[in-house]
């Protein structure tokens, strides 16, 4: 029988493909929010003796990752008139195809790494690596700056998933560090975004090329 963690994570893997295929920002935000929620609740199912603090902490993470950040991004694109298209460099079909290849590669790599503590959950490590690399892929293959921010958050979700599995004892510290990382990253990106918007009157990052001396 499949472990519930694996069931959830298979959804994450599907959402990766979905995010590669979505052409509009709101859909992408929804997918990233979903991944955030799923990544946050995984610790409940792994269940390393959750303490009260641990439960509260997990909920906080869930709130930040799954609700606050996606909501605020959604609010931003609504308020600032940003084009809703993600403007791909690599087309949607090609992206989905890459996504499939990515998942296969992630599974292969996680077999190779062979980390004993998480061998109970077949999909945990592949899903984490797939999230990480596909976040990277979105960063690379989408020209819209908001889509890139979303890719970054996806990457952080992947790191968080790896973090939940690695350190059982010092988990809160690691998670807290990652959370701060996300906040700082999103804030920096917001500032950069504002500057790009002010300078070029658009959030197309390919325009940054004109700054080269």
């Amino acid at each position: 029988m499949m472990h519930p963690v694996d069931t959830i994570l298979s959804l994450v893997l599907l959402s990766v493909l979905f995010s590669f295929g979505s052409s509009r920002l709101p859909g992408l935000i929804l997918v990233v929010g979903f991944q955030g929620i799923v990544a946050s609740i995984v610790p409940f199912f792994i269940g390393h003796g959750m303490s009260a603090g641990g439960v509260i902490f997990t909920f906080v993470t869930l709130a930040v990752r799954g609700i606050i950040i996606p909501m605020s991004i959604y609010w931003v694109i609504k308020k600032v008139a940003i084009r809703r298209e993600v403007e791909p460099i690599i087309g949607y079909h090609a992206s989905i195809f890459c996504g499939l290849g990515l998942i296969v590669a992630a599974t292969f790599i996680s077999r190779q790494l062979n980390i004993p503590t998480i061998s109970d959950y077949t999909l945990l490590f592949p899903a984490a690596i797939a999230l990480l690399v596909s976040g990277m892929f979105l960063l690379m293959a989408r020209r819209n700056a908001i889509a890139m921010v979303l890719g970054y958050i996806m990457m952080e979700n992947g790191i968080y998933l790896i973090g939940t599995t690695f350190s059982v004892r010092a988990r809160h510290i690691v998670e807290f560090g990652i959370l701060l990382d996300v906040l700082a990253g999103v804030m920096i990106m917001a500032i950069i975004l504002q500057n790009i918007k002010q300078t070029f009157d658009d959030v197309d990052t390919a325009l940054l090329r004109t700054l080269k001396d």
Binding site: I89, A105, I109, I129, V133, M136, F137, L139, M140, A141, R143, T205, A206, L208, R209, L211, K212
Partner: peptide
């Protein structure tokens, strides 16, 4: 050093994949 941010991220991705 071409100034295209997407290809820079591509370099990073390539490096990570190779390392993995």
């Amino acid at each position: 050093q071409h100034g295209d941010i997407h290809l820079y991220i591509g370099y990073i991705l390539l490096a990570i994949v190779l390392l993995l």
